[in-house]
Amino acid sequence: MRKLAVAVVVLTGGLLLYAATDFAAWGDPESPASDSDVSKHFIAETGVDTEVPNMVTAVLADYRGFDTMFETVVIFIAGIAILAILKLTGKDATKTPGKRKDEVDDAPDLIVTHTVRLLVPIIQLFAFYVLAHGHVSPGGGFQGGVIMGASFILVALAWDLPRAMDRLSVDRAILLAGVGILIYAGIGLLAMFLGGEFLDYAELSTIFPVSREMARYHAMLGVEIGVAFTVTTVMFAIYASLSSKGRLEGGL
């Protein structure tokens, strides 16, 4: 196996290095990737079309909105799949698993819990900031969602899993993940009912008192909120399932 691996690796490496000599030079502004009409169009027209200074957010949530929606669906499916793989059902679920020898059953550490108690509100506030400020600075739904999910994971690490599950149970988490996708698709469908195409946010200006560009701006925020819902909840659901072997109790 090892010899086969080395052979494959050497072959692939040779091919890739051979191809690497044909790449454009490092940081070349004239390289095909940077000089293509598509990239130039995004850089030049994003501000005109959407009023969003952060091009990455604009391209992510608007121009490639369809793609991002299904990326969110993939994350949602991952959350469901983990529950399906790990959650104990039938006979296994009813019998209470014995405590393992290495399971932590000490009281939660005082210093750690107090620091976490102090930090978690700030982290969650920062997550909202990242989510809402994603239009003018780095950030957006994915980052804000992950930070939000991390705050719940932090609670679970400092105390124990049940304490975090009191705030966000896994069933409710999966429900909220679905809600996130519904928010996303709902904004797209709303645009469709108003006469545009699916996810053509500019049409929302017919019912909201804003210009077409600002309609896209605000609809992007709504879409990012949907993404953040899904990412937050799925991250926590994955952690809860993984850390407790699918028992959703005890845990790390």
Partner: peptide, 19 residues
Amino acid sequence: YANPLPHVLMLTAIVVGVA
């Protein structure tokens, strides 16, 4: 400005990757 398109493609790839 740097090319935003690869950033967008990879941003979603990271999150989907962790899932």
